[in-house]
């Protein structure tokens, strides 16, 4: 694999094309930049956008972390990490703190990100207005005019019908007060981490051929109403493994009699806390 292919798989002109798109995306926070997405040796819908972005920004000294559902050991995260270990030979890490580039699907790590770190999100559907308007020609016009009334109306209809906003994940945000953006299918719990983050956030949608970005220290506001403020998920018990009371928990069914356990979805966070506990003991 490592022979016969360029560093990080993609050829250099393709990477340059990607970097140009990334620069434009950073210059216009939240704006979806069309790019000539390539077929990757992994299927579309399995992180090809994120993989192309990572391939374009990876240097030899980078330390790459890949997570899926917050975990380093889920099958697709393992597969993507192996892909870059093979094609770029870069160092990989499970530690959020040590990573320079973190490719993710569906989560932002619990450990606060630092200046200089880059998050790369895998995005299935980049267009926040897609379920309201299937046509690209229309949605691009709506973005151009910042015509986001339809989204507010959708959220309002939720409130009218259910008494609350029922969007559970991929909750729409307004970036730098201008562009409506899908944060990718992260839970609402992670939305506040996007706001004024010191890290650079890059989003790649391979199948849909769009790249967008949130530069460091940029305002990212989850849409809501004064009388129905944005809320995040909460649990009435801590992580059964490390005892964290402030992390996003996965629910694990332990038997067929309704038994449940809740553990951190962020495996690195959970393991670090356990290690610290063991050291202290």
């Amino acid at each position: 694999m490592s022979s016969g292919y360029n560093f990080a798989y993609l050829d250099e002109p393709t990477k340059r094309m990607l970097r140009r798109s990334l620069l434009k995306a950073v210059a216009i926070p939240g704006y979806q930049v069309p790019f000539a997405s390539r077929e990757m040796p992994l299927p579309f819908g399995w992180g090809t956008g994120g993989i192309q972005v990572t391939a374009a920004i990876l240097g030899r000294d980078d330390r790459l972390k890949v997570i899926d559902q917050g975990a380093d050991d889920t099958t697709n995260a393992v597969s993507i990490r192996d892909f870059f270990a093979k094609t770029a030979g870069v160092a990989t890490t499970l530690s959020t703190r040590d990573a320079t580039v973190i490719q993710t699907r569906h989560r932002i790590p619990e450990t606060p990100l630092q200046h200089g770190q880059i998050m790369v999100f895998q995005v299935p559907i980049p267009e926040p207005l897609r379920w309201l308007e299937p046509r690209e020609t229309e949605t691009r016009r709506m973005h151009a005019f910042a015509d986001y009334g339809a989204m507010h109306l959708k959220l309002y209809e939720d409130v009218a019908r259910y008494g609350r906003i029922t969007t559970a994940y991929d909750y729409p945000v307004l970036v730098a007060g201008r562009y409506l953006m899908r944060p990718s299918p992260i839970p609402r719990f992670d939305n506040p981490k996007l706001d004024a983050s010191p890290a650079l956030m890059l989003f790649g949608a391979g199948r849909e051929k769009r790249i967008y970005a949130v530069p460091p220290y940029t305002s990212v506001k989850s849409l809501d109403f004064e009388d129905h403020p944005f809320t995040i998920e909460s649990w009435d018990r801590p992580c059964a493994r490390c005892g964290a009371a402030d992390s996003y928990l996965d629910e694990i069914i332990t038997d067929d009699r309704g038994g449940r356990r809740f553990v951190c979805s962020d495996t690195d966070h959970c393991n670090q806390r356990l290690d610290a506990k063991e050291k202290a003991a």
Partner: peptide, 28 residues
């Protein structure tokens, strides 16, 4: 290639989103 990939990505884990859906549904 695009269609097959995206349809089959539903095989990938979605526990985090599903947990978020569960959270909303339980509250409702």
């Amino acid at each position: 290639v695009e269609a097959s990939g995206f349809v089959q990505h539903l095989k990938l884990p979605h526990y985090v989103d599903f947990q978020a859906e569960l959270d909303v549904l339980r509250r409702l």
